[in-house]
Design a protein around this nucleic acid. Structure first.
Lengths: 229, 229
DNA sequence: ACAAAAGTGTTGTCTGTACACCCATGC
DNA sequence: GCATGGGTGTACAGACAACACTTTTGT
């Protein structure tokens, strides 16, 4: 069966835009670039690109993320297809938005520089091209929802982290504070964290234990679903 | 600013496929058609069509739904973009899937006949073309999730309905049974149902009160979020 | 010895769940 | 008067939220 049908229908440019989240200990950040092509060259933008025929849309998203950050095997999830007629003044382009969670210090600094990419706090977003601000807003909502039931927050933290870092992350994502005692009890009761014998000593004299996320224990729980927040 | 850029990139056919849910008192149903174009003509399929340049993707979905059912102003939500390279043997087509909830008796029977459309119980799906079964599976999961927090289930019921119909709907969506007393208490405690003075008398001698969904009261609650299940 | 962050328990309230009987009516 | 589905209450258990003091150790 050849690819001979469907001749008479309109064809579209298909863009992929990536909302890349990171966390540096204080606020939740998105990775933004200075756009290099017209229209709107020089303006703040999400990292994006056009899908190609020989790759799936998911693969296109992975390629674009790799291109900017040098990272692959990253947590990434399709967000939404944005398909308004006038969303891109450069043409009839639909955009499939993806959001990704990366460890902020693992990205390739040279590549980021080459794209003039910056980590920008979600509370201090500049003007963005097209519908990119809407995309980020939706991505943040989806992240909140997802994080409530899945332990994907760990994708944003270093391999080992303290409970305080974890709590700070959740507070940044949900833009609210949690009671330290309740938070600790809840998280530990899930049984998906493993305490190391090592302590983080830079931010206190007593020192705080490091923990690691135990993926195996989580896999066991996954089907029942977990309630984190 | 003309539409002169982006010349060198690949262009895609963009399909829209609609998962149309309905409820007839027993099982949850999806509206399927016999496909009329090659490839795979004559096979069971979701209702779909190609997006056109002068319409948004959302508008395309609404057009396709109207085309099949004669209905507009229907609850419809974008589900996911399916973008695998080989998903459609007829060409490099990406598909944006939408799911819709309609009142099964309000659809236009002549139009359904014209497309050889049938309401098929989700538990008895036939073989479907392409990735359509995957689409339905994902749509059902999304419906469950959405219905847990939003009163969209009412879109599937007649304007006035009994508590038993409502419970049967939820049991069909979640594929489990609920305790009648707990279900009634929970639903009524939300304060979004209004009891009519009228009773449904065909299925019992005592008769069951009709209720209507009170949209205004729901709007007041919407921001807090509601927990239905 | 003191400053600074780490770590830890108890109580009351709310929410979910399990469970069984009387009611109204048409026949 | 009886069969049929309609409608209702209670008690227990688990989850959540509010709340403050002691511990460790580097200086």
């Amino acid at each position: 069966m050849g690819r001979i049908e469907y001749k008479q229908y309109d064809r579209f440019l298909v863009a992929v835009d990536c909302i890349i989240f990171g966390f540096d200990g204080s606020g939740l950040k998105a990775l933004l670039i200075k756009r290099r092509i017209e229209p709107e060259a020089g303006k703040w933008s999400l990292m994006g690109g056009f899908a190609e025929h020989q790759e799936s849309i998911n693969d296109a998203a992975a390629r674009i993320l790799l291109n900017l950050t040098g990272l692959d095997k990253i947590y990434m999830e399709q967000l939404h297809c944005f398909g308004d007629v006038e969303r891109d003044p450069g043409g009839r382009v639909i955009s499939i938005a993806y959001f990704a969670l990366i460890k902020i210090d693992e990205s390739d600094a040279d590549k980021l520089d080459a794209h003039q990419a910056k980590w920008i706090d979600l509370k201090k977003l500049p003007t963005l091209i097209f519908d990119h601000k809407k995309m980020i807003k939706l991505a943040k909502e989806r992240l909140q929802q997802k994080v409530s039931n899945h332990p994907i927050g760990f994708e944003l933290l270093p391999h080992k982290f303290t409970l305080q870092q974890l709590q700070a992350l959740y507070e940044a994502i949900f833009e609210r504070s949690f009671d330290k005692r309740n938070f600790t009890r809840k998280i530990l009761s899930l049984g998906i964290l493993q305490r190391l014998d090592e302590k983080e000593k830079t931010s206190s004299k007593k020192g705080a234990f490091y923990y690691v996320f135990d993926k195996k224990k989580y896999k066991q729980l996954e089907n029942e679903g977990i309630q984190l927040i």
